[in-house]
Every structure is written in C-alpha cells, then in structure tokens.
Simulated assay, not measured.
Amino acid sequence: MRPSVDERQERILQLVRERGSLRVSELAAELGVSAVTTRRDVETLAELGRLRRVHGAVTWPERAAPAPVRHPVEAGAPVLGLLVPADQYYYAEVIQGARAAAAAAGARLVLGISKYRQEEDAAQIASMLAAGADGLLLTPNWAGTTPTAAEERTILGLQVPTVLLERRAAPGSAAAELDRVCTDHVHGACAAVRHLAALGRRRIALLLTETTPTAGFVRTGYHAGLDAMGLDQPEDLAEEDSESRLRRLPDLVAAKTVDAVLVHTDTEALILLQHLQARGLRVPEDVALVAYDDEMAALADVPLTAVAPPKRALGEAAVGMLLDRLAEEPGSDSPRRHLDLLPQLRVRRSTADDAAAS
C-alpha cells in the first residue's frame, strides 16, 4: 500500500535527521516516488520550518521555530467547520493557518475535504454541522468562478454564519453580501507581468491551467499588466489545449516570438522548463519564466521566480473573521467584510542573475 502524505513526509524528516543533508533526487530514490512529489513534500516541510533548503539539498534546521501560543479548547468553545477541496498542494497551508488561528483562540476546527467533487460539498457541510459547527469557512466547488442561482441558494440557506474562502460571488448578488477572504490573483498576475517588463522583456506569453477557479483572475491580471506596460500579447495560444501550448512554446521562444512566460501553475512551469531544456533553450537567457502558486517553484533545476499567494494567512484571516462574526451580539448590524490579500512575487534565477535573485 502506498504511504500517505503524512507518512511520506515523516519518512523524509527521519532520513534528513539521520543523515544531516540529502539531495531531493536521493530522497526520491529512498522513498520510491517521483522527484516532483518529493519536491512538493520538501517545499511544504520547509515552509513549516521543519527542514532547510540549501543549494539543491535539504538539511535539518539549526533550531526549530517557536511554537505558537495556544489556548486550550474549553467546553462551550466555538466549533468552526472548514470545507476545502483538498488537504494537499495549495490548501495544505491554508489548513495549517486556520488550524493555528483556531487553536490560538481556543476554538475547535472541524475539517471537510470535498476532493474537488461538487456533489461532496453538501455532504461535507452536513457532516460538519452534525459535528456541532457554529460557523463555516467554505471553499465550494462551484461550476464557474461565481455561483449559479442554485449554488447561491444553497450557501444562503445555511443557518450559521458563513465566510467564503478563496471564492467570490458576483457583485450585486445576495451571496456577495457574505463575508469573504480571498487572494487578489489579478494583482499577482499583473505584478508578474510588470516584473518581466521591467527586466526588458517585451514578448510575454501566458500559459494557463484553464480548469481552476483561479484561471480567470490570472488572465485578467496578465492583460492588465500588458496594458499598464504598453505591451501586446505576442501570440494567441488560447485556442489550443494546455498540452499543445506546452509543445509550441519552445518553438516560439526559439523563433524569438516569446521572451517571457507567466505560467499557472507550478507543475506546468516545471514541465515547460523541461521542454525548453530539451530544446537547448536557456532560462533566463532565452526566456524568463514566472510560475504562479509557488508550491515547488524554488526546487526546480533553475529555481523559478513565482507569485506566492498568502495561503497560510488566508486560513488565519478567515478564522479571525468568522470568530468576530460569532462573537457579535444577536441583531448586530455590523458591516460585512471582503478582505483581499496580496500575493508576493518571489524573485529567483528564472528571471534574474545571481546578484539580483533572492
């Protein structure tokens, strides 16, 4: 039986603790999993301060980060339900932030995982309410970037305070009056384009994973960035599927039609890097790359500059917003809140020389 994510990460910690330092390729061989999977686990553990990444290797941290102050969960303390599509990749850090904020406030967090299946949303919400959830933090699997009328009725029909997490309702809709905490992905993509343009790149392409709720916002930010810098999209690849675009981009780079690419997500960026290297094209000399998500971008052969959504802070802020709502007196008319958190641009070798990269 394949080990779970937790079991695999514990094995990584054990190996690094025993040997002091290991390369990602060595860890992958020990675990019998792909290098991409191992990089993702290492990135997660490094973000938590449980490992250090040094020059392509991982080492045991010199000292552990101090544990956050937590208040014990008391009888009658708030119970918060958190629905997310997955407990890995993007949402692992969101969960960590929510868990830490709930524990620090003396609240209990109940987790529901929908596995990106829309039909699981209702079942997971019902389970959390049955477990005594006083309020809900929801990342529902809507068919589009905003809810349909039926999906909106479902959310509005819940009888407990609700905060949307990384989901937006259409302006002017009833669901838009719910509290929400989101990443400003439009700003993140725009910042990436402005960074590339500031480096002198003028033919900036977009490689987008269309099936994610983030895709539309990244596209909007990309075009806003081009407009702000007075640039045009070098060639329209929107009519082709993701795999076709991946295959075509090295040709466009070789023809000097493209000199930079914003890639959503990290996985697509790593695959594109491999395609470019197979053609003998250099990053960043021939083409600069910026990944979007920053889950494992730093672990690429050429560490990738990346837009990093504030995933942990999203979980923390959402819990704080829900706790504030639960603490209100009955009949309170305090305004609803929409909080947008700005992602960070983390500059690495794929867009800068060694002197400029961090």
Score class of each variant (00 low, 15 high):
206 L>K: 01
294 D>L: 05
197 A>H: 11
193 V>L: 08
333 D>W: 08
4 S>D: 10
21 S>W: 00
323 L>N: 04
13 L>F: 00
75 A>Q: 12
297 A>I: 03
231 L>V: 11
63 R>P: 11
275 H>Q: 07
137 L>W: 02
51 L>F: 00
261 V>M: 01
73 V>K: 10
190 C>R: 04
182 C>K: 03
235 E>M: 14
296 M>W: 03
326 L>D: 05
45 L>A: 12
32 G>H: 10
210 E>A: 15
37 T>V: 10
125 I>L: 12
348 R>N: 08
199 L>E: 07
82 L>P: 03
341 L>T: 07
12 I>G: 00
230 G>H: 06
343 P>L: 05
54 V>A: 11
90 Y>P: 06
167 R>S: 13
192 A>Y: 01
17 R>E: 14
207 L>G: 06
327 A>E: 13
327 A>S: 15
231 L>Q: 11
243 E>W: 11
174 A>W: 01
279 R>E: 14
234 P>Y: 07
46 A>N: 02
326 L>G: 11
34 S>M: 05
75 A>W: 03
228 A>E: 12
63 R>I: 04
251 D>L: 14
178 L>W: 01
114 S>N: 03
13 L>Q: 00
122 A>G: 13
158 L>Q: 13
48 L>K: 10
124 Q>H: 15
200 G>Y: 08
258 V>L: 05
90 Y>I: 15
17 R>S: 15
180 R>Y: 08
210 E>N: 11
49 G>I: 10
163 V>N: 02
341 L>W: 12
139 T>P: 07
211 T>E: 12
298 A>I: 06
128 M>R: 03
158 L>E: 06
232 D>I: 02
231 L>Y: 07
312 R>P: 02
19 R>Y: 00
255 A>H: 08
300 A>S: 11
325 R>A: 14
4 S>R: 04
191 A>F: 01
155 I>S: 08
52 R>N: 10
21 S>M: 08
225 G>Y: 00
88 Q>W: 04
358 S>H: 05
73 V>L: 11
99 R>Q: 15
335 P>S: 12
23 R>T: 09
281 L>A: 13
317 A>N: 07
325 R>G: 07
169 A>R: 01
186 V>H: 02
341 L>G: 10
14 Q>F: 03
91 Y>N: 07
107 A>H: 03
279 R>V: 11
78 P>F: 05
308 A>C: 09
196 L>G: 08
334 S>L: 13
319 V>M: 07
44 T>L: 14
322 L>E: 05
279 R>G: 13
346 R>K: 11
4 S>C: 13
284 P>Y: 02
206 L>C: 09
195 H>P: 13
270 L>E: 05
169 A>D: 03
14 Q>H: 14
5 V>W: 04
151 E>I: 11
57 A>Y: 00
3 P>V: 02
352 A>Y: 01
339 L>N: 07
98 A>C: 11
300 A>V: 04
138 L>R: 04
117 R>W: 03
358 S>C: 12
2 R>C: 05
210 E>F: 08
137 L>T: 02
